[in-house]
């Protein structure tokens, strides 16, 4: 028996009115793979993310997460299948504490009802202890544990990005989708982030799909790269192959390749 892919996207196409934003997108990701999704601005990368996570429904094509067709599923159900994401324009829960942010990330694993909450049942207390413990562990990975009780909006930009990753990991996904995790980070922070992404993959044994403009990061950690331009996949392969691909260079022409 072959190993189940964490993601299988076949012929995924989406149109907004007359505009085809993404066409015939194919991507399969095996467990623990590090895959990069790059392309110029407006190429449709975030739209791909939104389709994979159920925010948009593709017009055509099929998306399977851990082997399950997501056609009729809501975004929250897709998370339950094991795909968790971060957002390009940071969407942490601003007025909630870091701890609460991460505990909400683990929402799908805490199965007790409102009645358990109101009565403080044994089930409630076991789950709550576990939730707090797991949340602190995740925050520690990102050196945020000492601020667990602060409001998320009080964090500097880079830390908010890392909090978002911690929150997504709390869902214990098989596939982590990072939308421009290094945007707005300086060189030192980016290097730290690269190390952390590696660590996360090895520690939790999960696959990671990264949208990123920072070529250093993408080329540095991704095992495979997919290039989108105008909604079409124009190249895919190993980082070295992509770097030397004339089609890719043409798409990025005018932009330095290491920007």
């Amino acid at each position: 028996m072959t190993i189940l892919n964490v993601l299988d996207a076949q012929g995924v196409t989406i149109r907004f009115g007359g505009l085809t934003a993404v066409s015939e997108f194919n991507l399969s990701i095996r467990p623990t793979e590090l895959v990069g999704l790059i392309g110029p601005n407006g190429a449709g990368k975030t739209t791909v993310f939104n389709m994979l996570t159920g925010v948009y429904k593709p017009t055509e094509g099929e998306i399977r997460v851990n082997g399950v067709d997501t056609k009729s599923l809501k975004a929250c159900d897709i998370t339950k299948l094991g795909a968790a994401r971060t957002f390009q324009n940071i969407r942490v829960f601003k007025t909630l504490s870091l701890l609460d942010n991460v505990r909400i990330g683990g929402h799908i694993h805490y199965k007790y009802s409102w009645a358990d909450s109101v009565l403080h049942s044994v089930k409630f207390r076991e789950h709550e202890e576990q939730a707090a413990q797991e949340a602190i562990e995740l925050l520690s990975i990102f050196d945020l544990a000492h601020r667990a009780h602060d409001e998320a909006r009080s964090l500097p930009y880079g830390d908010q990005r890392r909090l978002e990753i911690a929150r997504a990991l709390a869902a214990k996904p098989k596939l982590l989708l990072l939308d421009e995790p290094a945007a707005g980070l300086n060189t030192g922070e980016t290097a730290g982030l690269m190390a952390q992404i590696h660590e996360i993959r090895d520690r939790f044994g999960i696959a990671v799909l990264i949208i990123e403009h920072n070529m250093e990061l993408v080329m540095g950690i991704c095992e495979r790269i997919l290039v989108l331009n105008y909604g079409k996949t124009i190249a895919q392969g190993h980082p070295e192959a992509i770097q030397n691909d004339p089609v890719v260079i043409e798409a990025y022409l005018g932009e330095p390749a290491d920007a």
Partner: peptide, 25 residues
């Protein structure tokens, strides 16, 4: 008690950002 439970936190998540809440399951 509700607000100090996963149910209450889910309420707060909905209030803060529905799209992010949905993405967290």
């Amino acid at each position: 008690r509700l607000i100090r439970s996963q149910v209450g936190r889910a309420f707060l998540a909905v209030r803060e950002d529905e799209i992010a809440a949905e993405a967290m399951g």
